[in-house]
Structure formats: C-alpha cells, structure tokens
C-alpha cells in the first residue's frame, strides 16, 4: 500500500451534479481497487495559469488516498477516457509527507492525540491557505 496525492482538473462549465458524479466515480474506483480515500477537497473553480486544451478555467478536485500501485494504472486509464477531466496529476507521497499527512489526519479525528499543539497549527495553516489560493484565482 502506498500513499498518493491526486489533483484532477474538471471542466469548469460542468454543473454541480456532474462534479458530484465525477467525484463519486473516482472514489468508487479507488475503493474497488482495495484503496481507501483519506482526504478529499474541492478547491472550486479557478483560473488556470495557462490555457490547457482551450480551457481557461477549471474545477479542481484534490484527493489523498492509500492504495496498491495497481490502482494508479486503473485511475490513469479512467482519466484518459473520462471526458470532464482534462488534466490530472498523481503523486506518490514520500516519508516526510506521509508523516505530515498522518499528523493532520489525527488532528481531524476527535481522539486526543499526544501532541495536539503542532498538529493544530498545521491544520490552521492549511485551512487559511486553500481559500486564499482560491481568492487569488478569482482576482486574476
């Protein structure tokens, strides 16, 4: 089992129901391949830094999951034929990134962890980072 991070850019013209469906399809596929989705976020519609396939805007989805390596091949095959997705990136997490991820996941759980202070700080940083990124995207 490896930890992976996945960003998917969907067509911004897609309606919310379409985005729900796409998200469900991706999580289903990961779970079918004996994986487990640990985190999923919606960054929303953002302006792309450069034009990709004539798209100027995209809807960003962000996943973190734990799965066997075979699942990645299946995901990549899905993205190739899945129309709303026009760009994706899957990254295998390294040791230090996994540790940070586990800390943040522990902080989200109600369980009182041994060291709540540093993890809480991390969550706060993450929390204010994402909307600010979205805000800059909207301003541009």
């Amino acid at each position: 089992m490896n930890y992976y991070e996945n960003i998917v850019i969907l067509d911004a013209a897609l309606e919310d129901s379409g985005i729900d469906a796409a998200e469900k399809r991706i999580t289903d596929l990961v779970e079918k391949a004996q994986g487990e989705v640990l985190k999923h976020e919606r960054w929303g519609r953002r302006k792309l830094s450069y034009i990709i396939n004539k798209h100027e805007k995209g809807y960003y989805l962000f996943f973190v999951f734990k799965s066997p390596p075979a699942a990645i091949k299946l995901l990549e095959e899905l993205y190739k034929v899945f129309d709303p997705v026009f760009k994706f990136m899957i990254i295998k997490l390294r040791k230090k990134e996994i540790i940070a991820l586990q800390n943040s996941l522990q902080a989200n759980e109600p369980k009182p962890a041994e060291e709540p202070a540093p993890t809480a700080v991390e969550v706060a940083v993450e929390g204010d980072e994402v909307p600010s990124v979205a805000a800059t995207g909207a301003a541009e």
């Binding site: 960003i7 850019i9 792309l48 830094s49 450069y50 990709i52 995209g58 760009k87 990136m89 990254i91 990124v133």
Partner: peptide, 11 residues
Amino acid sequence: KRARNIALLSF
C-alpha cells in the same frame, strides 16, 4: 515543476 504541471504556476 509540479505546480507548473497542474497549472498552479505558469511556465
């Protein structure tokens, strides 16, 4: 390079 790939930064 990763950020550029996913259009968070521009080339």
